[in-house]
């Protein structure tokens, strides 16, 4: 499909398309194949979760889709157009919150809005405050970053990503460092935002239960070289309870599949 056709198609069903994507990193012991022949399609409005052991190339994949790094081979299309650099239609949330310490919470959320044309200072502050309220942190708008807890930082980062109003959210283990309670609360928030605002989400995690709780489709990734294995559609009704037996059963099946996939070359353990 050429990019022109992609534009003309009334509702391009595939929001993201990766075809034959490969990426290597040169190191002292030769090139590490972080990603190898990745084929992947994410539909508009779909919630796709990638699970895989540490070092299998999940973060690398997200930075490629975000346009922060370039693939060595293959192509990545967003809305049918090749990705050549970062774009505000695709917002990435990093593994660490990456907030700016010289700005308060509100200022951090405002950052992305400052580059949006046609928003004056007042409007910017209002939009930023709206998104802080959305993640439940309006009371902390004037807190400095170091005054926020880890979970609050992640929520500010989420507000910052959402404020730019991207169509696609790329989330790299955003909740890994949080306690179970905060995490469950954020699952709810994220699910609500996703369904209300029709985002397309590509989400990375180590946690298979988390994957099943959030995903329309779970993808397995295996390392050395980084490959995407089979996908598991999750058709459980939403909202889901991460502690429900159905969910646990699905997670169990995926964990077993992952173990089988890893058997020939087990290096890093899964949690």
């Amino acid at each position: 499909m050429s990019s022109l056709q992609g534009e003309l198609q009334p509702s391009a069903p595939e929001k993201l398309v990766l075809r034959g994507v490969g990426k290597g990193f040169p190191t002292q012991e030769g090139t590490v194949r972080a990603l190898d022949r990745i084929d992947l399609q994410v539909a508009e409005g779909e919630f796709v979760v990638i699970v895989g052991p540490s070092g299998c190339g999940k973060s690398t994949l997200l930075s490629l889709v975000a346009g922060l790094d370039r693939a060595d081979e293959g192509e990545i299309l967003a809305d049918g157009v090749p990705v050549t650099g970062p774009g505000r239609d695709r917002m990435i949330m990093f593994q660490e919150a990456a907030l700016f310490p010289w700005r308060d919470a509100l200022g951090n959320v405002e950052f992305g809005l400052e580059l949006k044309p046609g928003l004056d200072r007042r409007a910017r502050a209002e939009v930023a405050a709206f998104f802080l309220r959305l993640v439940g942190l309006e009371r902390f708008r004037h807190s400095w970053v170091h005054e926020l807890s880890g979970g609050m930082k992640q929520r500010v980062a989420l507000a910052r990503s959402l404020a730019a109003n991207p169509r696609v959210l790329l989330m790299d283990e955003p909740f890994a460092a949080l306690d179970a309670m905060t995490r469950e609360q954020l699952y709810g928030d994220l699910e609500r935002i996703w369904s209300e605002r029709r985002k397309t989400i590509l989400f990375v995690t180590h946690n298979v239960r988390e994957a099943v709780c959030l995903a329309d489709r779970v993808l397995l990734m295996t390392p050395h070289p980084g490959r995407v294995q089979e996908g598991f559609p999750i058709d459980l009704p939403r909202p889901r309870d991460i502690n429900s037996p159905e969910l646990a059963a699905r997670a169990g099946a995926i964990t077993r599949a992952l173990r089988t996939a890893l058997e020939p070359a087990t290096r890093d353990g899964m949690p």
Partner: peptide, 21 residues
């Protein structure tokens, strides 16, 4: 930290804006 620059770039910052802000 390079992560600050990467975060800024995804939000549309580049060039002089990244330097100053």
């Amino acid at each position: 930290p390079p992560i600050y620059v990467r975060a800024a770039r995804t939000m549309g910052s580049k060039g002089l804006h990244t330097w100053l802000r």
